[in-house]
Amino acid sequence: MESHSGITVQRALELPGLRAGLPEVVAGADRLHRTVRWVHAGEVPNIASLLKGGELLLTTGLGLGTRPAEQRAFVRRLADRGIAALVMELGPRFSRLPASIVDAARAAGLPLVQLHREVPFVAVTEEVHTEIVNGHYALLQQAEEVHRRATRALLDGGGVPQVLGILADFTANPVFLETPDGQLLYAASTGTGPVGADPLQVWEGMRGDRAARESPPTGALLVDVPGGGPDTGAVRARLVLLAVSGPLATVHRMAAERAAAGAGLRHASETATAAQGLDDRPWYDARRLDIDLLLWRLRDHPDLAAFVNRAIGPLREHDRTSRPPLLPTLQAYLAHAGRKAETARELHLNRQTLYNRLARIGELLGTDLDDPQTVLALSLALRARRHTN
């Protein structure tokens, strides 16, 4: 993936400012596709220490030194710094570039350009920077358009699959939403290319072993989806974009970051966290776990723990000291909406044993298990206990 937004060295040389200097590429002609992040002009010997990488450096060579060893070291330091290209204007300092400079640039794989005519460096700087800023703005517009489409899909009643589908179409690559430990929540594919309509096969291949979960493939793009509620800064999930059909670019990351800030993805990621501890299933529908999400968001509120203790505290105390435990019986009974025959079959009990256990539960709780309000309170308490100590 591109690490910076900008223009290529080739594009910079085609702009009027540098083109007026009659540029000649004398080294690194095969690397003119490098991205120019910024332009810097300078004549000091230690200029490499002032650079961050990705710069197009303009100089007349006053800081290169007079000895070949100094000149080679100067070029090597620039290459090690990761600049995009070195552009040297011929004139009073050099009427032609010394072999030591050209050879060092070739050895380091650094694009080296000599200008045969004098050009105002400030004009070149302004021109290239304008091109970079305009390009960056264009990327922002593309990413913002993806964000608008995703937001519109959510407002129109769509969900996470629609948002991921929009991202997949934009990047022309499969997109996944997964938990931080690599468990899949949703997947989407562009429907074209080698993976076609089966992104799950790609994800399973990527996540087939533990090492793959911890070290995503080269070229993958990962974007954190922050949670809401009291732990706003916590990471609840992440978007994973894989470079399957083509490379991923800076604009793809920008679009993914905007999509990650959408309420739908946050909802899905928080619901995945809230669902931890439920019965082991291959997947859960996030739209049917709103109650669990609400209880999870209240997990640190003392009233929730007090409610759980009032509702099922006596059963919890019973199960710590006596056998058989009664909480599993109550949970199965409520899961089957009070249908005793189905409850007995799930627990492998005869009906009379189940009746005796239900009677004991009602006695310990001092309540009627046939009362709808009681059933509702007990169901909520059983769900909420996973989120309380």
Score class of each variant (00 low, 15 high):
S189T: 14
A188Q: 09
A143S: 14
V133Q: 10
F170I: 01
G158M: 01
L140M: 10
Q162M: 07
E178T: 04
Y137C: 03
T171Q: 08
G135W: 03
L154T: 13
R149T: 10
L177N: 01
P194F: 02
A188Y: 08
E178D: 05
T190G: 15
V133S: 01
T192L: 11
A172I: 11
V175L: 00
I166R: 05
H147I: 01
Q162W: 09
G191I: 08
V175F: 03
V133L: 15
T151I: 08
D181W: 13
V160S: 10
N134F: 07
Q183R: 14
A188R: 11
S189E: 04
A138V: 02
V175E: 01
L167Y: 14
R149E: 13
L139N: 08
P161N: 07
G193R: 03
Q162V: 01
V163Y: 06
N134A: 13
A168F: 05
E144C: 04
Q141N: 00
A150M: 12
N173R: 06
P180I: 05
Y186R: 14
T190K: 02
T192M: 13
Q141F: 01
V160Q: 06
V175Q: 04
G158E: 01
H136R: 11
L185V: 12
G191R: 12
V146A: 09
L140F: 00
G165E: 00
T192S: 14
L184I: 07
L185E: 04
L177Y: 00
R149V: 09
E144H: 12
D181C: 06
A168I: 01
H136W: 10
P194C: 03
L139V: 01
G158S: 00
P194Q: 00
H147P: 03
E144A: 15
L164W: 07
A150L: 12
V146I: 13
G135S: 07
Q141K: 12
Q141D: 13
G182I: 06
Y186E: 14
L155W: 11
I166W: 06
G158N: 01
P194Y: 02
A188H: 11
V160N: 02
F170H: 09
L154W: 10
L167D: 04
V175G: 02
T171Y: 08
E145G: 06
T171N: 02
T171H: 06
V163K: 08
L177E: 05
A188C: 13
Q142G: 09
V146K: 03
D156G: 15
E145F: 04
G159F: 07
V163Q: 03
V163A: 07
L140C: 10
A168R: 04
